[in-house]
Each structure stands twice: as C-alpha cells, then as structure tokens.
C-alpha cells in the first residue's frame, strides 16, 4: 500500500491542478483575512468557501485522477498486490495531497495573518472541517469512478453528489421544516444536520463563532446539544461514518470489479 500511496501523493502534489488549488486558497484566505474589517466576517466568508469548494474540488479532482489512471490501474493490479491495498493507497494518496494543499493554502495565511486577530481557534475549526470534507468526498469520488466505467456519467454523478449536499439537501430540509412548522422540530433539525457533512461542519463553525443567537430557539438547542460531550461524539461518529462507509463500499466494489 505504501508504494501506491507514495506514488499517488507525489504524482498529485506536482500536478498543475494541485498547484492551482493551493494558490486559490492562498489568495482567497490571505486577502479575506488581510482586508476584512471584522475577524468574524472573514471567518464566516472563509467558512463558506471551504464548505463549498473543498467537496467540489475533492470530487472533481478525484474523478479526473482516477479516470486518468484507469488503464495504469490494470498494470498495477496485475502485480502481486491485494486490491484493497491498491485502493487504500489511492484513497490516502488523493486525500492527503488535497489536505496538504488545504493546509498550505489556508493554514499559512491563517498562521501569519490570522494569528494577530485572536480567531485562531475559529479558523482551526474551519480548517478541520475542510480536512474532514476532503476525506469524505475523496472517498465518494473513488467510489463513483469504480462504479461507473462511463466517464461522462461519472462526472455527472460527481456534480450531482456535490449539488445534493450543497444545495438540494438544504432545500428539501427547509421545505420539511416549513411543512411541519407547527411541531417541535429541534430533534429533527439536529438529525438532519448531523446527516449532511457539509451542514454539520457549518453548524459546528457557526456555534464556535457565537452566531447561534441568530438561529433563535433552534440555535439554543443546537448549542446545548453540540456543546455537550454526547453532541461532540455524535458529530464525530457521523463524520467517521461518512468517511468509512464510502471507503468500505469502494473496497467491496474494488474486490469484485473486472479490470
């Protein structure tokens, strides 16, 4: 696994995509932190960038990379290597390279510019959310490519998955909240949030930013729940399930797939 992992990691780190992705984060976070009037605003804007861009880039870059290496996979899988080892190597190579891009692009401005702004803790949570989303959506990207030989279809699914978590899920969620407005919805709202990794990250960051007051009663109950030890473990388990479930499915698919 280690050789496949190392090769994927270095192959990706020196690719043009990876450099562009790092530069994008470097520029956006440095300028937001440097020019923004209020530190909270800067963190909130950065949060939105990280929440939308990280999953999208993980999915698209993952799908492009795995489709590009489809024929090479055939050569490597004909070597004495377990299929699971090959796929783990690919997954960790991709996700770690994206995490490194994020750490450099987002972490460096955070340390140098954000340090004086006393918001290092909040920024760290945004960074952590970015890392978590990268781990989740890289696994989904690999799963999509394994399940779809047709590249156009694979790209389509990647975009649909991103749209679902970023837009459609929230839309459906809001419609349901409006429909059942007369009922107590705190528990439902919490379950709905925990199930979508992008929403979960957003709520965790907003709670840290003391913006939960804006969310009214729901905000208060969110604060109570996610602030508690139980809430912390529920969120952590949700994130872990979101990483391990696609990984499990992709290893299962990878073991039976014909190359």
């Amino acid at each position: 696994m280690l050789s496949v992992f190392k090769y994927c990691l270095f192959d990706l780190l020196r690719s043009r995509w990876s450099i562009v992705y790092t530069l994008f984060y470097l520029l956006s976070s440095a300028s937001l932190l440097y020019f923004s009037n209020s530190a909270t605003n800067a963190v909130a804007s950065l949060m939105n960038i990280v929440l939308f861009i990280t999953p999208l880039v993980s999915l698209l870059l993952g799908v492009i990379y795995f489709y590009q290496n489809r024929d090479f996979a055939e050569l490597l899988l004909a070597q004495p290597i377990r299929r699971s080892q090959y796929f783990y190597g690919n997954y960790f190579g991709l996700s770690l390279s994206l995490v490194i891009n994020l750490l450099v692009g987002f972490g460096l401005p955070m340390l140098f510019i954000g340090n004086g702004l006393q918001i290092l803790q909040e920024l760290s949570i945004v960074l952590l959310a970015g890392v978590m989303l990268t781990l989740i959506f890289s696994a989904l990207a690999l799963l999509i490519t394994l399940r779809n030989e047709n590249r156009v279809l694979g790209f389509g699914y990647a975009i649909v998955v991103w749209l679902f978590f970023a837009v459609i899920y929230d839309g459906l969620f809001l419609i349901l909240l409006l429909w059942f407005n007369d009922y107590p919805l705190e528990k439902f709202a919490m379950i709905g949030t925990v199930l979508n990794p992008m929403d979960l990250s957003r709520v965790m960051i907003l709670l840290k930013l003391d913006l939960s007051a804006l969310m009214g009663f729901t905000g208060a109950s969110f604060r109570q729940f996610f602030g508690s030890t139980a809430g912390f473990f529920v969120s952590l388990s949700s994130a872990l399930i979101w990483i391990t479930l696609p990984l499990y499915l992709l290893i299962r698919k990878g073991n039976t797939k014909d190359f």
Partner: peptide
C-alpha cells in the same frame, strides 16, 4: 502474480 510478467494491450501511464 509475483511469478507473472504482464504486457497489457494499452500502454497508458500517468502523465507526470
């Protein structure tokens, strides 16, 4: 498979 050398039909490698 450590005892097999294989030449696939399509010779495509990672570009970098």
């Amino acid at each position: 498979r450590s005892n097999i050398g294989y030449v696939p039909q399509i010779a495509r490698f990672p570009e970098n």
